[in-house]
Each structure stands twice: as C-alpha cells, then as structure tokens.
C-alpha cells in the first residue's frame, strides 16, 4: 500500500464539495448495507405479524415461539453439528495442503493448489447436483455426514488461503533450527510449525465455519430430511410470513458478530502484518 507521504490528499486537497459528496455517498452506502440487518433485529421485537411503520409495540413473543415450535431450533442444532465438524475437517485438509505447498517442490504442485481452490469458483448449484449424484449412488445422501463431507470440499479453500498467508510469514530458519537441534520431521511439524500456524488455523476455521453455516444450495440437495438452518429457514419463508424468522436472524447475527470479532482479532493481524524475520 502507498504510504501516506502527502499529508493532504491529492484528490481532495482543495475540494470541499468532493469530500462532502464522498461522505454523503458513504453514508447512503452504509445505510443500504445495514438496512436489512437493522430491520431484522428491530422487527424481531415488534408485535405485528406483518412488519410496517409505525410499529405496533414491543414483544418477546417471537423468541418464545421459536423455542416452542422447535423445527428451526432443531435445524440450528443440526447446523451447530455440521459446521464445526466441517470447518475442523477443512482445517486439517487445508493445513496439510498449505504446508505441502509451502514446504515441498513436487511434480504437479501448481495443479494441486488449483484443484484445492477450484471448488469455490464453481457455482454451488452445480456442486449440489454433482454431490447428490455421486452420494446417492453410494448411499450416503440425506444424512448430516453427507453435508459435512460436501461442505468440506467447498470450505477447504478459504481455510487453506488463510493458513497459507500465515505460513508465508514463517521464517524458514525456524524449521531449520529445529532440525539442527535434532527434531524429526514430525516433531518439527508438531512442535514448531503447528504452534506458529495456530492463529492462521483459528482464523481459517472461523472463515470456514461461517461459509458452512450459511451455505444453502448444497445442503438443500444432499441433506434430505436432516435440514441445516438455511434449508429450514428457506422452507419456512416459502411457507409463511413469520416474525420468528427475525428472531432466528437476530440470534444468528449475534453469534456471527462473535465470530467476526474473533476474525478481527485473528485474521486481520495476519493479513496486515508483513514478513518478519527470525526473531519473533
């Protein structure tokens, strides 16, 4: 990134009008970005079934209904089984792949990394049909494990990318020192590389978790009756207008804000820090 050599911005040095326009534009843009989320939170506490302005008074009834009804809650639990496991699997695969690419020169190395990144470039709709096609031939469709196995394919790439960024910051002298001191390959991996990569793995895990938690169409195809949250929510929306959905949305948003803070703490330092030489 260009460093701030000029204290005054070249584009805005004397342009008050431009600055004002830019600020206004940003305000409108952020309003648009936040609008549906704010709506969701506000109207999860509003009495009327059909949201409108002015409001019709405050209530907790939709949260209560959510816990009484159970279908969405069951789906939320399914998702809370699927996504952590899929994210963990993706991190194992992602770490192994990232380390191999980082460490070894081997035939087909480029193709190897392309193969692992490719799933995010293919529309999930296509993958959903493809996964169901194969899984149904081997009797693996319609279970939570089918969602886990297929989500892992798609979320390995983001996890791997973050871990690669972290490994790229690892000074090679670190591993060499371990070998010189008599550590075996596996000891070095376990005691030196893994601890160093841990922030990257954690950041990658959160990213992978978020992708899996929000993934719809693949789960729609392969999950059968074991619906994950997005699939159950979709079925619910198509069926009716129910502010309970706002309640789910608010809960999910609160959960993901927690993971966003986690990402902020883990991911951004990795993305922003430069390569540091051996002494840390």
């Amino acid at each position: 990134m260009a460093s701030a050599i000029h204290p005054s911005d070249p584009l805005a040095a004397d342009g008050r009008g431009w600055r004002l326009a830019g600020r206004l534009y940003m305000a409108v843009g952020y309003f648009f970005l936040v609008l549906p989320i704010a709506t969701m939170i506000v109207f999860s506490f509003q009495k009327g079934q059909f949201a409108s302005i002015p409001g019709q008074g405050w209530t907790f009834q939709w949260y209560g209904k959510l816990f009484d009804d159970g279908t969405l809650l069951a789906a939320l639990l399914n998702s809370l089984i699927v996504s952590p496991l899929a994210a963990t699997g993706a991190c194992v695969l992602g770490f192994l792949a990232a380390y191999s690419i980082h460490r070894f020169r081997f035939w087909g190395r480029g193709a190897f990394s392309v193969l692992l990144v490719l799933p995010v470039l293919i529309p999930p709709l296509i993958l959903g049909v493809a996964f169901l096609g194969l899984l149904s031939r081997i009797g693996l469709q319609g279970q939570l494990s089918s969602v886990i196995l297929t989500h892992m394919v798609v979320i390995t790439a983001p996890a791997m990318a973050v871990i690669q960024l972290r490994l790229g910051q690892m000074p090679s002298s670190l591993e060499e020192a371990a070998w010189d001191l008599g550590a075996t390959q596996f000891q070095t991996l376990y005691k030196v590389v893994l601890p160093f990569a841990l922030p990257g793995i954690a950041g990658g895990w959160l990213l992978a978790f978020t992708f899996s938690f929000d993934e719809f169409i693949i789960a729609w195809f392969v999950s059968g009756f074991e619906q994950t949250l997005p699939v159950a929510v979709y079925a619910y929306i198509v069926g009716s207008v129910d502010p309970s959905l706002n309640a789910v949305g608010s809960i999910v948003f609160a959960l993901s804000m927690l993971s966003l803070i986690g990402v902020e703490l883990l991911l951004f330092p990795i993305l922003l820090s430069q390569y540091r030489s051996g002494d840390d």
């Binding site: 549906p36 207008v241 949305g249 948003f253 902020e264």
Partner: peptide, 21 residues
Amino acid sequence: MLAVAPFWSSYVLRLFSWQIL
C-alpha cells in the same frame, strides 16, 4: 469491517428481511 459485517449474517435471513422491507 463495517462493510464486511453484513456478509457474516445469514444470506437467507437477510433475504427474508428484504422481503418485509
């Protein structure tokens, strides 16, 4: 961070929100 925040909320539920909007 603020611009990325919506990405972390559920897409299906955001669409529901757009429906009622």
